[in-house]
Amino acid sequence: MTWRRLAAGGLAMLVLLAALAMGAAIGETRIPLDVVGKTLANRLWGAGYGLDPIDEGVVWHYRVARALVAAACGAALAVCGAVLQSMLRNALADPYLLGISAGASSGAVSVAILGLGGGFLSLSLGALIGALVAFGLVALLALKAGRGAAAIILAGIAGSQLFSALTSFIVTKSANAEQARGIMFWLLGNLSGVRWPDVGLALPVALIGCLVCIAHARALDAFAFGANAAAALGIAVRRMQVIMFGATALMTAIMVSIVGSIGFVGLVIPHAARALVGVRHHALLPVSALLGAVFMIAADILSRTIIPGQVLPIGVMTALFGAPAFAVILMQRPVTR
């Protein structure tokens, strides 16, 4: 059993590393894999290979950072989706259910268009604050509405609608066409501006967040028959709700503030992972993280290469290629009553 787990973990790391290497090699200009490897060797332990400084710069400063952030976002969103689907017992739950992406967009437009913060707030920070404010409101509303799964989902819908309306209001009232277009691109998800400092934020948040969720895998399993059944199995349901909703909200808010609200990953990757390894969270969460990371890197590569000379928003790619793949998974599920 332990050996099998070690082998699975090793295989997962290999797949992830291969995806990262592809992310660094493929782009507008194709850079051979050996150059990617040598760049990493130069940067990580000063191997001193002679390389074209432009190639080396592109690989290190742009592509590696970008691929790492994509992986972190994909893993975090997929794990958040899996956790929320289990806690709320709803197959349609995704990381944005609790008002986070709507709040983030309101925060972002408040900074970018209304000039909130007087230039001291970045777009990212504005988005993060907006996301957390929205989540706070949704949490408060859910608390008042009775804490049940239905109450939480409805509170999330109310919060999301409110903040979406607020965003539309600000955009239509104050933005010029150029700003409105810029905001729309940001909302669809964008990895173009990603640099190393973003890696420094995204990677630890994704790692710690995913580990916190995986540490609660057994308690998440116990929610299969609902919160009451979980309580009867000895789970402190309130505490669990605070930790899980808090952790997923924080992870999602930080990812959205770095790359915008990339859809589809958090909804669909957990279902794909369930089809592969079943419903037990010890396996489901790590596999969701791996699939999410690889899927996001692949979507990023496609978004950069599918139309020569143009970068598409990654959110468009995740849905455009993810939806058909998901349809295939759905159709292959065994039919049961």
């Binding site: 308690a219 299969a224 028959f225 009451n228 199995l233 369930r274």
Partner: peptide, 20 residues
């Protein structure tokens, strides 16, 4: 009434009993 939408197996459902 305790139902689930999860595709767990009969044995997995019983295994939950060991949780505490």
């Amino acid at each position: 009434q305790a139902e689930t939408g999860e595709r767990l197996t009969a044995r997995q459902a019983v295994k939950l009993g060991r949780t505490p």
